[in-house]
Simulated assay, not measured.
Amino acid sequence: MSLDKSKAFVPVRIAVLTVSDSRTRADDRSGDVLEGRINTAGHEMVDRQIIADERGLIADQLRAWCCDPEIDAVISTGGTGLTGRDVSVEAHRDVYEKEIDAFGTVFTIVSMQKIGTSAVQSRACAGVAQGTYLFALPGSPGACKDGWDEILRFQLDIRHRPCNFVEIMPRLEEHLRRK
């Protein structure tokens, strides 16, 4: 992996969604981690919301952001576990047009290096809808750091080689063009 220094950095417009029944902006450490890393990387933080662990509410917010031409990617944190209230993955999959299957696999590999076999409990996932990338990370600040530092910071940088998500953004909706 390397950065192509001959290419200009392209800021990605990102929204962050914290899924929690109990968090507020004052104690949303995971959202703070993501916002800090997004800004430090030079991307644009477009919106940040906290929504209860309700499948319909989560899916509705994801859809609204997918319809917003000012948002390129959404990162959610929380609700990816195994308990009855954890429905972020299901909500994300309700919205996806295409799932990025390897995202969860790569996240698990990264997590294994940090938390061992406990990584098996994560259901991190990603997909694309209406030309917008959607990423679901676990709710812990550590998982958000891992997801950003080890995956998203590279894939959301057009200079990353051999390939990245940003360079294919213009083609995400090419199936909608007339033939």
Rank of each mutant, 00 (worst) to 15 (best):
F165S: 13
S76R: 05
T80G: 00
D86A: 14
P162N: 03
A8S: 13
F135D: 03
G42Q: 05
Y96I: 05
F154A: 07
L134V: 06
L156M: 01
I14M: 06
T18Q: 00
G127P: 13
R37C: 05
L57I: 08
S140M: 07
G116A: 06
M169T: 15
G139I: 04
G79A: 02
P162L: 08
W65V: 13
P138W: 08
G147D: 06
G79H: 01
D32P: 01
S118P: 06
R63K: 15
D94F: 02
E167F: 03
T105R: 06
Y96E: 05
T117R: 08
R85L: 08
P170N: 09
R171V: 11
E44P: 00
I115G: 05
K5Y: 01
D157Q: 00
G127H: 13
R23E: 03
T83L: 12
D28A: 07
T132E: 04
M45I: 14
L62E: 12
I75A: 12
A102T: 09
K114V: 11
L57W: 07
L137F: 07
R13Q: 09
G56D: 13
Q113T: 12
R25L: 09
V10R: 09
I100K: 11
G131H: 04
E99C: 09
V166N: 15
K98N: 10
L137G: 01
L152E: 08
T132Y: 10
S118N: 11
K98S: 08
